[in-house]
Write a protein that binds this DNA or RNA. Sequence first.
DNA 1: TTGAAAGCGATACCAA
DNA 2: TTGGTATCGCTTTCAA
Lengths: 336, 336
Amino acid sequence: MTTIHEVAQAAGVSISTVSYALSGKRPISEKTRRRIEEAALTLGYQPDAGARMLAGRRTHIFALTEPLRADTHAPTHMAFVLATAVAARRRGYDILLLTDEQTSEGMNRVTASNLVDAILVLDVAPDDERAAIARSIRTPTIFIGIPDDAHGLTCVDLDFDAAGRIAVDRLADAGHERLTLLGQTEVAYRKSNFPRRLLHGVEDRALERGVSIDWVTTGASATDAVAVREAAASALDHGHRAFIVHSVDDVHEALLSVFADRGLRVGRDVSVVSAAASFDTSTLSVPVDTIPLIPQQSCELAVELAVRRLEDGESTTGIHLLPPEYRSAGSIAPPG
Amino acid sequence: MTTIHEVAQAAGVSISTVSYALSGKRPISEKTRRRIEEAALTLGYQPDAGARMLAGRRTHIFALTEPLRADTHAPTHMAFVLATAVAARRRGYDILLLTDEQTSEGMNRVTASNLVDAILVLDVAPDDERAAIARSIRTPTIFIGIPDDAHGLTCVDLDFDAAGRIAVDRLADAGHERLTLLGQTEVAYRKSNFPRRLLHGVEDRALERGVSIDWVTTGASATDAVAVREAAASALDHGHRAFIVHSVDDVHEALLSVFADRGLRVGRDVSVVSAAASFDTSTLSVPVDTIPLIPQQSCELAVELAVRRLEDGESTTGIHLLPPEYRSAGSIAPPG
DNA sequence: TTGAAAGCGATACCAA
DNA sequence: TTGGTATCGCTTTCAA
């Protein structure tokens, strides 16, 4: 185990010079810095994590709390975890997992023991109990998602409201007056925050534009594809030709299969926009206009905020919304 | 931030007595111990993580490496991560995530910086590069899964070989002489280790019992359900009435739907065994005999081994196979 | 059964 | 531009 002393000795300097050279926290002459870096490299020096935490009161670890509920969409969730880990690592931070019951107990524990520099909160519920904890602890906490009461918190998320409005705008611009929103599962509208924000944006703008909205909740499992098909069929029978989909890939495919069955061509006979899909929509069997939910963006911003707060002392309190982006794929047509 | 000094003062003892009382590493009189525990509790004392790492040489953190490939089945993967985190936490350890490129770089880094006490390896590939790294570092490493060359490693896994043999036995016992194995995706047989072990067990025992095996690989996505249906239909047309399924829930349902379409009753007209399913098979539309793959079991054993190695100095090298368990649900019938 | 004190290996302050 | 060193909070040996 290489220590800072060995590096100092190899480079012929003091340990404080090594520390400063490696952290860049004070100017070091170019040639001694190079000697030190070389010594550190050849010796495979990595500062001892414990010593660094103790002396520097910085752990270079972020906690990630994720309450893995049964209805959590695993692929989406994994994408967020992965994106967070990658973003954190790029800034020199590791991710410590806090699951389930640990959420509240764990947040307090890692704070009390100075195990982490900041806490990132995933899968935020409207009445999330972690909001209160975040306010009560000194550890900087960043929410990826927005609870109903975000007072005093730092939150990051896609602007689902705006995404909903944009989707309506595009379809209304094309001349559609009756839209169908294939939404998430019913439970998602209670336990999650973003579905209702998208719904709100959709309803809001629909009212402004004078178009009607049919809101249909969907199932998440493959067996529910039947229900989606029925809902779509019914909408078509009622003359609806414009669809906003805010759901998992299976629901998209179920909808597209109904079109195919009826010989309806997307972008010609029917119009579809996929809003805030977290999966790769380019793998859909038919190209569909998309307002993508990019986990990387939210997670990177969250990490960025945590780092700014820690390293620059900047206050980050407030809600940070990422503007949605519209990706056209030719799936919108006039009502015909 | 409560320190050990404050606890010592509150309890009227020295800090070393507090340390020993809380760690239990040396006998403390009942009454002083109680005083100390009470003081620690009321003060909300949690030992400083950094100081503990530095002074002891134990971090109480496990690293978890997971190379999240594109073909990873997210729900299964999440179950393993969750099970590991829960098992670790129960023993007083936290989980640090090591993803992707970090796998090799990360394993070396956490070892060099003494960030973790042990490393748990998930999603093991046949030619896993982490095997070589595990051999080269001093940090105890436990594989959940078995690479082709497991020499010198500690591995934990379900005995897929035995699971395959049991499945064949049950069906052969019922009198079936022609079996169809609906397996995993093709890529899984190359990139993963366990599918081929199950296949091996099935083929092996089939040979011994003198029954024939048809091995069919499946897709994982919903769109591949069609292929599964065709394979099943073809098998039925050839007079096969016995199926072993080693795949995700969608494939199970696709198979069951073919039976339903033909009016074939599971456990009467056709026989089905689900082998090493990682999802909850009780949610299937029809009860099916199961040889479950229980992530909790593997993960708990892995954590248990790591702890034994760390705390008792016990050597754990070798392959630790969990015996499969057969759960009957009446889905096997004679060939009729 | 308990206490005193020597580290553990960094960081960062105070000097030079 | 660099060096010496107090310090972080705990674990553990050595004494009592």
